[in-house]
Computed example of a mutant assay.
Amino acid sequence: MGRVIAPLVTEESVTFRLPDAELALTGTRLLPALSLPDARLEFARAGKVWELDLPRPPALRMEYKLQLHHVDGEVEEICDPGNPLRAPGAFGDKSVVEFPGYVAPAWLDAEKVPGETVDVTDTIRLWAPADTEPTDPLPLLVAHDGPEYDRLAALTGFSAALIAAGRLPRHRVAMLQPVHRDEEYSANPEHSALLHDTVLPALRELVAVEGPVVGMGASLGGLAMLHAQRSHKGLFGGLFLQSASFLDKELDPQERGRFSMFAQVSAYTAEVLRGEAAVEPVPVALTCGTAEENLANNRQMARALAAQGYPAKLTETPDAHNYVSWRDAFDPALADLLRAVWVG
């Protein structure tokens, strides 16, 4: 493909260039991992280089891949060979553009207390400060997709850093791994019952838990946490919901044909919006990216929960639906929620 050319990033735009010295491509398309409904994503050929000028999206970061159309008909998706910056994700790395003004969280490089993680079962991992005994009563944070949260968003690193800084009390983090994610997390009563009847009792039997348990999740994991809290009184004393999939028939028609659980999820969203089956309001912190499709449904849900008595606050972050975005929102949104629930 020849020499590589880095993206040209400014305050207002980004210009992508892909060399094609041997004229091996018939087209190139940008695959952005955020919502750009009106943007032109097809590159134009300029001699032996494919080029695309893109106005800056409403974000400080943009994850993406390139789709290459070869002359033999093959279609290939790659990271940008001219951009060394990579972002980890559940389905592999993507290239990433960081616009002027983006700064990673300070806690990533801060001092951290040593921690230990043990496998409780095949689907539950438990982290705690290294010098903790099982009989030490500590607050508990329970995370859907927890191992992925930890690997891609440094969840326990966040806990370790804020404990070291004295900003959060010593606590444990239970990381839950789904087996059949879409089915389990799509407002499934059986999954909520499993949390109430089996998972939380098992954790309480294993270690001493102090105060209300806080549940967290992203995307469908956030939806599932809300479902569990509303279904079982006393299960969670606070919720941290990131880009939760509160899919709505009016706001999210694009999901109808591409997500098999759309009918079940949208029916539950409608139920919550009507105020049905609320068992007890608890503090809720929501975060959502300004450049993702879930923004409108998260705004709608935040208003509905507040109207039902939940102390609910939505923080909109200049990013999209990805783990780095969720990581970057931990401080202050998650930190503030945990202090409010655990310290008061």
Rank of each mutant, 00 (worst) to 15 (best):
M1K: 08
I5K: 00
I5L: 11
L8V: 13
V14A: 15
V14I: 14
A21C: 00
A21P: 00
E22M: 09
A24F: 06
T26I: 03
L34V: 06
S35E: 14
R40Y: 09
R45K: 12
W50M: 00
L54W: 08
P55S: 13
R56V: 04
P57W: 01
M62I: 02
M62Y: 02
E63N: 12
Y64K: 04
L66C: 09
Q67A: 06
Q67H: 01
H70W: 03
D72S: 01
E74D: 14
I78P: 02
C79V: 13
P81G: 01
A87Q: 10
G89V: 02
F91A: 15
D93Q: 15
D93M: 14
S95V: 11
A104V: 08
L108H: 04
P114E: 00
T117P: 03
V118W: 02
V118A: 09
D119W: 05
T132E: 11
P134E: 10
D136G: 02
D136P: 01
P137D: 07
L140W: 01
L140V: 04
L140F: 01
L141E: 01
D145Y: 07
E148Q: 11
Y149E: 13
A153T: 03
L155T: 08
T156S: 02
S159K: 07
A160Q: 09
A160G: 09
L162F: 07
I163Q: 06
A164P: 02
A164N: 05
A165Y: 02
G166T: 03
G166I: 02
L176V: 15
L176S: 05
Q177H: 12
Q177F: 09
H180C: 07
R181S: 06
D182I: 03
D182K: 02
S186Q: 14
P189I: 15
E190T: 14
S192K: 10
S192M: 10
L194D: 11
T198Y: 02
T198S: 12
V199W: 12
L203A: 10
E205Q: 07
E210M: 01
E210H: 07
E210Q: 12
E210G: 01
G217M: 12
A218Y: 00
S219G: 03
L220C: 01
G221F: 09
G221C: 09
S231N: 08
S231Q: 12
L235D: 08
G237I: 08
L239D: 13
F240L: 11
S243H: 08
A244D: 13
L247E: 14
L251D: 03
L251W: 01
Q254L: 08
A263T: 15
A263C: 13
Q264N: 13
S266K: 00
A270E: 15
A270W: 05
A270K: 04
E271C: 15
L273F: 00
A277E: 10
A278D: 15
P281W: 15
P281M: 15
P283W: 03
L286C: 05
E292P: 05
L295A: 08
R299E: 09
Q300T: 12
K313P: 15
L314A: 08
T317W: 13
P318D: 00
H321C: 01
Y323F: 14
R327K: 13
A329G: 09
P332R: 00
P332T: 06
A335I: 12
R339F: 02
A340F: 02
W342T: 09
W342C: 12
